[in-house]
Amino acid sequence: MIIVTVLIVTAGLAGIFWMANWPFGTPWAKDLTDKERRIEAEHNRRHHRGVALIYFPGLAVIFGVASIAIFVDQKSQAAAVAMGLCSVASVGVFVAVIKGGRRRRSSKRR
């Protein structure tokens, strides 16, 4: 039951990501002019990082809680390990987003 709940939440959040990438990946994308495509791409770049900063820690917590719940119930050790690995992967992606967003500043001494 817990695995199904986590998968439903994950599918819902994947739907949010698809909507955040709108209109790319849809049939309407081919109708965009070059200017509209550049505007939409810039808008998506700015907002994807913000969504990821909220999305991945939430996923890590959800997967972690599910892993602990499955492990405590001792129903399936493999499922508990899988959920734990998903939690670790979510944390890893979150850290990568944080590190990738840092801008290198030039030295103030010149």
Rank of each mutant, 00 (worst) to 15 (best):
I98C: 06
V9N: 00
G84R: 10
A66P: 01
T33H: 09
G15I: 03
A29D: 02
W22N: 03
A78N: 08
K75A: 13
V88R: 04
F71N: 14
S106I: 02
T26A: 07
G64H: 06
W22Y: 12
D73R: 09
M83A: 05
R37Y: 14
S90M: 01
D31A: 14
C86Y: 07
K108M: 12
V61P: 07
I3P: 06
G92S: 12
T33G: 10
D31T: 12
V91S: 02
G25M: 12
R104N: 11
M83T: 00
I70P: 04
R49C: 05
K75I: 13
M1T: 12
A66H: 02
R110Y: 05
A79I: 00
G101T: 04
V65N: 04
Y55S: 00
V72I: 09
G12I: 01
P57D: 13
A29N: 03
G92R: 12
D73V: 07
N44Y: 14
R109Y: 09
V88N: 04
M19W: 05
S87R: 01
S76C: 07
V93P: 00
I3Q: 14
A78P: 03
I54S: 07
L85A: 14
I70V: 13
S90E: 00
C86M: 14
R38P: 01
G15M: 06
K75P: 09
V72E: 07
A60D: 06
S107A: 11
R105H: 13
D34F: 11
R105Y: 10
A69V: 03
A29L: 02
A79T: 01
K108C: 06
A78Q: 11
A11P: 01
A78R: 14
V72T: 07
M1Y: 08
S76P: 03
V81L: 13
R104Q: 12
Q77T: 06
K99T: 13
I54A: 10
G50Q: 10
L53R: 10
E42S: 10
R110H: 05
P27N: 06
I98L: 11
V95I: 15
T5A: 13
A20S: 12
M19A: 08
I3N: 13
S106D: 05
V9K: 00
G92V: 13
I2A: 14
R38C: 06
S106Y: 07
T33K: 15
I54F: 09
I62Q: 02
G92L: 13
S106P: 03
L53C: 10
V65W: 09
A66N: 03
G25C: 10
I8R: 04
F17Y: 09
D73E: 13
K35E: 11
R49V: 08
R45S: 11
S90R: 00
V72G: 02
V4F: 10
A80M: 09
P23Y: 08
A14H: 03
V9R: 00
T26W: 09
V91Y: 08
S106G: 08
D73I: 08
D73F: 13
V93C: 01
V65Y: 06
E36W: 02
R38E: 15
G50K: 15
I98H: 04
F63R: 15
V65Q: 07
I70K: 08
M83N: 03
V4E: 13
Q74N: 15
F24P: 04
R105K: 15
L59M: 12
P27K: 10
A20F: 15
I62S: 02
H47G: 05
V65D: 04
K75L: 14
D73Q: 06
N44T: 09
